[in-house]
């Protein structure tokens, strides 16, 4: 089953005469219950693609979420099915960690309704999953960059959507917490969620099930992370200055001079 699909997707950034096309007709099918990494050189259009897939960017072509055209679905209905974690989500310094995670329940709650038992349970699950539960009464503004990132990830997890799109989720995380995030993404996919992550570091990206290699706004390759063709596509888009090798049963990317 296909969870998320793009057909002839085109998008541009900027305004007026400064408008610059970034995506040039992307066709993409992302299977449900799989974890897909989107990688590519700087300026390839990775974040733009993710925003377009999330319905957060005006675009030409179509995006289909669980078979239905995304543009036609209501905001809250879409938000319950698709959660998004952006790069450098900021502000909200005066909210407690718990309140920030509870924002993830907005699509599930009535206009003025207080959070219900299901909302509290979802927030607790999300904060425990990112090991942020112990700070739930602290203010977001009192946390370090890595701690904030874990809380913001919990906010996205608290939506409990079937599709989770994350843009650079590893930014600010130290190596142990990067490993925790990788394990979390794996467990989410194993539990049936569709996880799509944009990562600029290739080694973590290779832990996913599938990889979409993007360059200059076009898909160069889509395939399993362990396929030789995927590794060749990576070497190609990074000017042959990257090689993929197996180490202790995991694929790792090595940069070369």
């Amino acid at each position: 089953m296909i969870a998320l699909e793009a057909r002839a997707l085109r998008a541009a950034l900027g305004h007026g005469s400064q408008r610059h096309p970034v995506l040039h007709g992307i066709d993409l099918r992302l299977a449900a219950g799989r974890w897909t990494s989107i990688v590519g050189p700087n300026g390839a259009g990775k974040s733009t693609l993710l925003r377009a897939l999330a319905g957060l960017l005006p675009h030409e072509g179509q995006v289909l979420l669980n078979g239905a055209v995304l543009a036609g679905s209501g905001g809250r209905a879409r938000a319950r099915q698709l959660a998004w974690l952006g790069q450098n989500e900021g502000g909200a310094d005066d909210l407690t960690v718990y309140d920030v995670a509870m924002l993830g329940r907005l699509p599930h709650r009535g206009w003025l309704a207080p959070p219900g038992a299901a909302d509290h349970a979802a927030v607790e699950r999300a904060l425990r999953a990112t090991q942020a539960w112990d700070w739930r009464t602290r203010l977001l503004g009192q946390l370090s960059g890595g701690e904030r990132q874990r809380v913001l990830l919990a906010r996205a997890l608290a939506v409990e959507a079937g599709v989770l799109l994350m843009d650079e989720p590893l930014s600010n995380l130290d190596p142990p917490h990067q490993a925790d995030w990788l394990a979390l993404a794996r467990s989410l996919a194993d539990a049936g969620s569709t996880v799509v992550s944009v990562l600029h570091e290739i080694s973590p990206a290779l832990q996913a099930d599938e990889m979409v290699v993007l360059a200059a706004g076009r898909i160069v390759h889509q395939g399993a992370c362990g396929d030789a063709a995927t590794h060749e596509a990576l070497a190609q888009v990074f000017d042959r200055r990257l090689r993929v090798r197996e180490l202790d049963g995991q694929w790792v990317a090595l940069t070369t001079q």
Binding site: A83, L85, G86, G91, V100, L103, P107
Partner: peptide, 14 residues
């Protein structure tokens, strides 16, 4: 509160 996380995040929350 949702808007404090950024306009894109607020929009993604419906």
């Amino acid at each position: 509160d949702g808007l404090a996380l950024g306009e894109a995040t607020a929009a993604s929350l419906g």
